[in-house]
Simulated assay, not measured.
Amino acid sequence: MTFAVYLPALLSVLLVAVSKAAARHTSPAAVTRGLTLAAVGAATAYAACLSFLALTLLDDLPPLAAFDHLPGLPKPVPGPVALVAAALLGWGAWRLFRDVRTRRDTHRELRSAGSPGAAGLVVADWEAPHAVAVPGNPGHILITTGLLRTLDGRERQVVLAHEHAHLRHRHHRLTALAAAAAAVNPLLVPLRDAVAHHAERWADEEAARQVGDRGLVARCVAKAALATRPQLALGGASVIGRVSALRRPAPHGRWTRLAGPAAIVVAIAAVTATAAFEFVAVATAWLHLA
Protein backbone atom coordinates (compact mmCIF):
# COMPACT_ATOMS: atom_id res chain seq x y z
CA MET A 1 0.00 0.00 0.00
CA THR A 2 1.25 3.47 -0.87
CA PHE A 3 1.44 6.71 1.06
CA ALA A 4 -2.22 7.46 0.19
CA VAL A 5 -3.38 5.44 3.19
CA TYR A 6 -1.65 7.88 5.55
CA LEU A 7 -2.88 11.09 3.91
CA PRO A 8 -6.32 11.42 5.60
CA ALA A 9 -4.59 12.00 8.94
CA LEU A 10 -2.29 14.66 7.47
CA LEU A 11 -5.14 16.32 5.57
CA SER A 12 -7.20 16.45 8.78
CA VAL A 13 -4.63 18.86 10.22
CA LEU A 14 -4.83 21.01 7.08
CA LEU A 15 -8.65 20.89 7.23
CA VAL A 16 -8.63 22.33 10.76
CA ALA A 17 -6.31 25.19 9.74
CA VAL A 18 -8.25 26.12 6.60
CA SER A 19 -11.63 25.85 8.35
CA LYS A 20 -10.59 28.36 11.00
CA ALA A 21 -9.86 31.00 8.36
CA ALA A 22 -12.94 30.21 6.28
CA ALA A 23 -15.31 30.58 9.25
CA ARG A 24 -14.38 34.17 10.09
CA HIS A 25 -16.76 35.97 7.76
CA THR A 26 -19.36 33.29 7.11
CA SER A 27 -22.80 33.03 8.67
CA PRO A 28 -22.84 30.81 11.78
CA ALA A 29 -25.55 28.59 10.24
CA ALA A 30 -23.41 27.81 7.19
CA VAL A 31 -20.28 27.29 9.29
CA THR A 32 -22.02 24.94 11.74
CA ARG A 33 -23.49 22.76 9.01
CA GLY A 34 -20.43 22.87 6.78
CA LEU A 35 -17.88 22.06 9.47
CA THR A 36 -20.05 19.23 10.78
CA LEU A 37 -20.15 17.62 7.34
CA ALA A 38 -16.40 18.16 6.94
CA ALA A 39 -15.64 16.60 10.33
CA VAL A 40 -17.81 13.55 9.68
CA GLY A 41 -16.26 13.03 6.24
CA ALA A 42 -12.70 13.38 7.53
CA ALA A 43 -13.33 11.04 10.48
CA THR A 44 -14.90 8.40 8.24
CA ALA A 45 -11.91 8.48 5.90
CA TYR A 46 -9.48 8.35 8.84
CA ALA A 47 -11.23 5.30 10.33
CA ALA A 48 -11.37 3.56 6.94
CA CYS A 49 -7.63 4.00 6.35
CA LEU A 50 -6.80 2.82 9.86
CA SER A 51 -8.93 -0.25 9.16
CA PHE A 52 -7.03 -0.94 5.92
CA LEU A 53 -3.74 -0.78 7.81
CA ALA A 54 -4.96 -2.87 10.73
CA LEU A 55 -6.38 -5.59 8.47
CA THR A 56 -2.94 -6.19 6.99
CA LEU A 57 -2.14 -7.93 10.27
CA LEU A 58 -4.07 -10.87 8.84
CA ASP A 59 -1.18 -11.64 6.49
CA ASP A 60 0.82 -12.72 9.56
CA LEU A 61 -1.69 -15.49 10.28
CA PRO A 62 -1.63 -18.94 8.69
CA PRO A 63 -1.96 -19.82 5.88
CA LEU A 64 -1.11 -16.37 4.49
CA ALA A 65 2.09 -16.06 6.54
CA ALA A 66 3.66 -18.85 4.50
CA PHE A 67 3.61 -16.66 1.39
CA ASP A 68 5.30 -13.58 2.89
CA HIS A 69 8.50 -13.92 0.88
CA LEU A 70 7.14 -15.06 -2.48
CA PRO A 71 8.08 -12.83 -5.45
CA GLY A 72 5.38 -10.76 -7.12
CA LEU A 73 3.35 -10.06 -4.00
CA PRO A 74 2.69 -6.46 -2.87
CA LYS A 75 5.04 -5.29 -0.14
CA PRO A 76 3.23 -5.77 3.19
CA VAL A 77 2.67 -2.95 5.65
CA PRO A 78 5.24 -3.15 8.50
CA GLY A 79 3.83 -5.01 11.49
CA PRO A 80 4.38 -2.17 14.01
CA VAL A 81 2.51 0.27 11.75
CA ALA A 82 -0.44 -2.11 11.48
CA LEU A 83 -0.43 -2.61 15.26
CA VAL A 84 -0.43 1.16 15.88
CA ALA A 85 -3.33 1.52 13.41
CA ALA A 86 -5.29 -1.19 15.22
CA ALA A 87 -4.62 0.48 18.58
CA LEU A 88 -5.73 3.89 17.28
CA LEU A 89 -8.87 2.35 15.82
CA GLY A 90 -9.70 0.68 19.12
CA TRP A 91 -8.99 3.86 21.07
CA GLY A 92 -11.26 5.83 18.77
CA ALA A 93 -14.05 3.27 19.18
CA TRP A 94 -13.75 3.54 22.97
CA ARG A 95 -13.79 7.34 22.85
CA LEU A 96 -16.88 7.23 20.64
CA PHE A 97 -18.67 4.82 22.97
CA ARG A 98 -17.83 6.98 25.97
CA ASP A 99 -19.02 10.17 24.27
CA VAL A 100 -22.33 8.61 23.19
CA ARG A 101 -22.92 7.18 26.67
CA THR A 102 -22.14 10.51 28.36
CA ARG A 103 -24.53 12.42 26.09
CA ARG A 104 -27.27 9.84 26.61
CA ASP A 105 -26.90 9.96 30.40
CA THR A 106 -26.85 13.77 30.40
CA HIS A 107 -30.04 13.98 28.34
CA ARG A 108 -31.76 11.50 30.65
CA GLU A 109 -30.78 13.52 33.69
CA LEU A 110 -32.01 16.76 32.15
CA ARG A 111 -35.34 15.19 31.14
CA SER A 112 -35.80 13.89 34.68
CA ALA A 113 -35.79 17.46 36.04
CA GLY A 114 -39.48 17.83 35.24
CA SER A 115 -42.22 17.63 32.64
CA PRO A 116 -42.62 20.68 30.40
CA GLY A 117 -45.82 22.68 30.40
CA ALA A 118 -47.77 23.93 27.42
CA ALA A 119 -45.04 26.47 26.64
CA GLY A 120 -42.40 23.73 26.47
CA LEU A 121 -40.62 25.09 29.53
CA VAL A 122 -39.38 23.50 32.75
CA VAL A 123 -38.39 25.80 35.62
CA ALA A 124 -36.14 23.96 38.06
CA ASP A 125 -35.74 25.32 41.59
CA TRP A 126 -31.96 25.15 41.50
CA GLU A 127 -29.52 27.79 42.76
CA ALA A 128 -27.09 27.12 39.93
CA PRO A 129 -27.84 29.55 37.06
CA HIS A 130 -28.43 27.47 33.92
CA ALA A 131 -30.56 27.37 30.80
CA VAL A 132 -30.39 24.49 28.35
CA ALA A 133 -32.30 23.15 25.37
CA VAL A 134 -33.24 19.56 26.18
CA PRO A 135 -33.64 17.45 23.01
CA GLY A 136 -36.52 15.03 22.76
CA ASN A 137 -39.80 14.45 20.98
CA PRO A 138 -40.74 17.15 21.58
CA GLY A 139 -37.79 18.97 23.08
CA HIS A 140 -38.13 21.58 25.79
CA ILE A 141 -36.20 24.28 27.62
CA LEU A 142 -34.90 23.82 31.14
CA ILE A 143 -34.15 27.03 33.04
CA THR A 144 -33.27 27.37 36.69
CA THR A 145 -34.57 29.84 39.23
CA GLY A 146 -30.97 30.83 39.88
CA LEU A 147 -30.68 32.20 36.36
CA LEU A 148 -34.16 33.74 36.35
CA ARG A 149 -33.23 35.81 39.40
CA THR A 150 -30.12 37.05 37.62
CA LEU A 151 -31.90 38.34 34.49
CA ASP A 152 -34.53 40.99 33.90
CA GLY A 153 -37.59 40.56 31.69
CA ARG A 154 -36.02 41.37 28.32
CA GLU A 155 -32.93 39.30 29.10
CA ARG A 156 -35.17 36.32 29.86
CA GLN A 157 -36.72 36.76 26.42
CA VAL A 158 -33.24 36.62 24.91
CA VAL A 159 -32.38 33.39 26.75
CA LEU A 160 -35.65 31.73 25.68
CA ALA A 161 -35.19 32.83 22.07
CA HIS A 162 -31.61 31.49 22.12
CA GLU A 163 -32.65 28.09 23.50
CA HIS A 164 -35.64 27.83 21.15
CA ALA A 165 -33.22 28.35 18.26
CA HIS A 166 -31.16 25.37 19.49
CA LEU A 167 -34.29 23.21 19.50
CA ARG A 168 -35.69 24.48 16.20
CA HIS A 169 -32.48 23.85 14.27
CA ARG A 170 -31.61 20.62 16.14
CA HIS A 171 -28.18 21.86 17.12
CA HIS A 172 -27.74 18.88 19.46
CA ARG A 173 -27.50 16.61 16.41
CA LEU A 174 -24.85 18.71 14.71
CA THR A 175 -22.73 19.04 17.85
CA ALA A 176 -23.11 15.32 18.58
CA LEU A 177 -21.94 14.41 15.06
CA ALA A 178 -18.92 16.72 15.35
CA ALA A 179 -18.10 15.27 18.77
CA ALA A 180 -18.37 11.73 17.38
CA ALA A 181 -15.99 12.65 14.56
CA ALA A 182 -13.48 14.07 17.06
CA ALA A 183 -13.79 10.96 19.21
CA VAL A 184 -12.82 8.78 16.24
CA ASN A 185 -10.13 11.18 15.00
CA PRO A 186 -8.65 13.32 17.83
CA LEU A 187 -7.02 15.59 15.23
CA LEU A 188 -10.53 16.99 14.65
CA VAL A 189 -11.05 18.22 18.23
CA PRO A 190 -10.65 21.88 17.09
CA LEU A 191 -13.43 21.30 14.54
CA ARG A 192 -15.66 19.86 17.27
CA ASP A 193 -15.08 22.96 19.37
CA ALA A 194 -15.69 25.22 16.38
CA VAL A 195 -19.02 23.53 15.63
CA ALA A 196 -20.11 23.96 19.27
CA HIS A 197 -19.04 27.63 19.24
CA HIS A 198 -20.78 28.45 15.96
CA ALA A 199 -23.95 26.65 17.04
CA GLU A 200 -24.04 29.10 19.97
CA ARG A 201 -23.35 31.96 17.57
CA TRP A 202 -26.20 30.74 15.35
CA ALA A 203 -28.59 30.78 18.32
CA ASP A 204 -27.28 34.24 19.33
CA GLU A 205 -28.06 35.61 15.86
CA GLU A 206 -31.53 34.06 15.92
CA ALA A 207 -32.19 35.68 19.31
CA ALA A 208 -30.90 39.03 18.05
CA ARG A 209 -33.26 38.92 15.06
CA GLN A 210 -36.18 38.05 17.31
CA VAL A 211 -35.65 40.76 19.94
CA GLY A 212 -34.23 43.29 17.47
CA ASP A 213 -31.33 44.40 19.68
CA ARG A 214 -27.85 42.95 19.17
CA GLY A 215 -26.46 44.94 22.09
CA LEU A 216 -29.04 43.46 24.44
CA VAL A 217 -28.14 39.94 23.34
CA ALA A 218 -24.44 40.67 23.81
CA ARG A 219 -25.04 41.94 27.35
CA CYS A 220 -27.24 38.94 28.14
CA VAL A 221 -24.66 36.45 26.87
CA ALA A 222 -21.96 38.08 29.01
CA LYS A 223 -24.20 38.35 32.07
CA ALA A 224 -25.42 34.74 31.88
CA ALA A 225 -21.89 33.45 31.31
CA LEU A 226 -20.48 35.38 34.27
CA ALA A 227 -23.33 34.13 36.48
CA THR A 228 -22.68 30.55 35.40
CA ARG A 229 -18.88 30.71 35.45
CA PRO A 230 -17.44 33.54 37.59
CA GLN A 231 -13.97 32.53 36.46
CA LEU A 232 -14.88 33.81 32.99
CA ALA A 233 -13.13 37.06 33.87
CA LEU A 234 -9.86 35.12 33.67
CA GLY A 235 -10.61 33.39 30.34
CA GLY A 236 -13.68 32.34 28.42
CA ALA A 237 -12.48 32.96 24.86
CA SER A 238 -15.62 31.41 23.35
CA VAL A 239 -18.01 33.72 25.21
CA ILE A 240 -15.78 36.73 24.53
CA GLY A 241 -15.85 35.83 20.84
CA ARG A 242 -19.65 35.59 20.87
CA VAL A 243 -20.01 38.98 22.56
CA SER A 244 -17.52 40.59 20.14
CA ALA A 245 -19.41 39.16 17.16
CA LEU A 246 -22.69 40.59 18.47
CA ARG A 247 -21.07 44.01 18.68
CA ARG A 248 -20.54 43.89 14.91
CA PRO A 249 -23.11 43.71 12.09
CA ALA A 250 -24.62 40.30 11.41
CA PRO A 251 -22.44 38.21 9.04
CA HIS A 252 -23.93 37.36 5.66
CA GLY A 253 -21.23 35.14 4.15
CA ARG A 254 -22.53 32.15 2.21
CA TRP A 255 -21.47 28.57 1.59
CA THR A 256 -18.98 29.70 -1.08
CA ARG A 257 -16.63 30.90 1.66
CA LEU A 258 -16.32 27.27 2.75
CA ALA A 259 -14.87 26.24 -0.62
CA GLY A 260 -11.44 25.66 0.95
CA PRO A 261 -12.59 23.11 3.55
CA ALA A 262 -14.85 21.50 0.93
CA ALA A 263 -11.88 21.05 -1.42
CA ILE A 264 -9.86 19.37 1.33
CA VAL A 265 -12.75 17.01 2.13
CA VAL A 266 -12.90 16.08 -1.58
CA ALA A 267 -9.15 15.44 -1.51
CA ILE A 268 -9.56 13.26 1.59
CA ALA A 269 -12.29 11.27 -0.15
CA ALA A 270 -10.08 10.84 -3.23
CA VAL A 271 -7.04 9.55 -1.33
CA THR A 272 -9.26 7.26 0.74
CA ALA A 273 -10.73 5.80 -2.46
CA THR A 274 -7.17 5.28 -3.74
CA ALA A 275 -6.21 3.53 -0.49
CA ALA A 276 -9.34 1.36 -0.74
CA PHE A 277 -8.46 0.24 -4.29
CA GLU A 278 -4.91 -0.55 -3.18
CA PHE A 279 -6.19 -2.53 -0.21
CA VAL A 280 -8.53 -4.54 -2.43
CA ALA A 281 -5.63 -5.27 -4.80
CA VAL A 282 -3.45 -6.48 -1.91
CA ALA A 283 -6.25 -8.58 -0.40
CA THR A 284 -7.05 -10.13 -3.78
CA ALA A 285 -3.42 -11.10 -4.34
CA TRP A 286 -3.20 -12.79 -0.94
CA LEU A 287 -6.55 -14.55 -1.24
CA HIS A 288 -5.60 -16.06 -4.58
CA LEU A 289 -2.62 -17.67 -2.86
CA ALA A 290 -4.43 -18.85 0.25
Rank of each mutant, 00 (worst) to 15 (best):
H140V: 09
V282S: 07
H288N: 14
A222Q: 12
Q210N: 08
P116N: 03
G92N: 02
L55N: 13
A182Q: 05
E205Q: 13
L174G: 04
A270I: 06
G241C: 12
A4D: 14
R248N: 12
V184S: 03
E205N: 10
L226C: 08
M1I: 08
D125H: 13
T256K: 08
G120L: 11
A17E: 15
L89E: 04
R254I: 09
A218Q: 02
T175W: 00
F52M: 14
A4T: 05
A128W: 13
P251D: 06
S27Q: 09
H169F: 05
P71Y: 07
D125L: 03
A22R: 06
H198N: 13
I143H: 04
R254C: 11
A161H: 08
L226P: 05
T36C: 00
A203D: 08
A93S: 14
G114Q: 09
A23T: 00
R247L: 15
T145E: 03
G212Q: 07
H69Y: 11
G120A: 05
A283H: 12
A245I: 04
A124D: 14
Q157E: 15
D213C: 01
V211D: 00
T175C: 11
P116L: 05
A93L: 15
H288V: 14
R101Y: 11
G34I: 10
R101K: 12
A262M: 13
A250I: 02
L7E: 11
L232E: 12
R101Q: 14
R111S: 14
S112K: 15
T26G: 08
V265H: 03
L147R: 05
Q157K: 11
T150F: 06
C49V: 02
V221K: 03
V134R: 06
P80E: 01
A86I: 00
V195G: 11
R104P: 13
P135E: 06
R219P: 06
R149M: 03
A194F: 07
W202F: 11
G253N: 00
L167K: 00
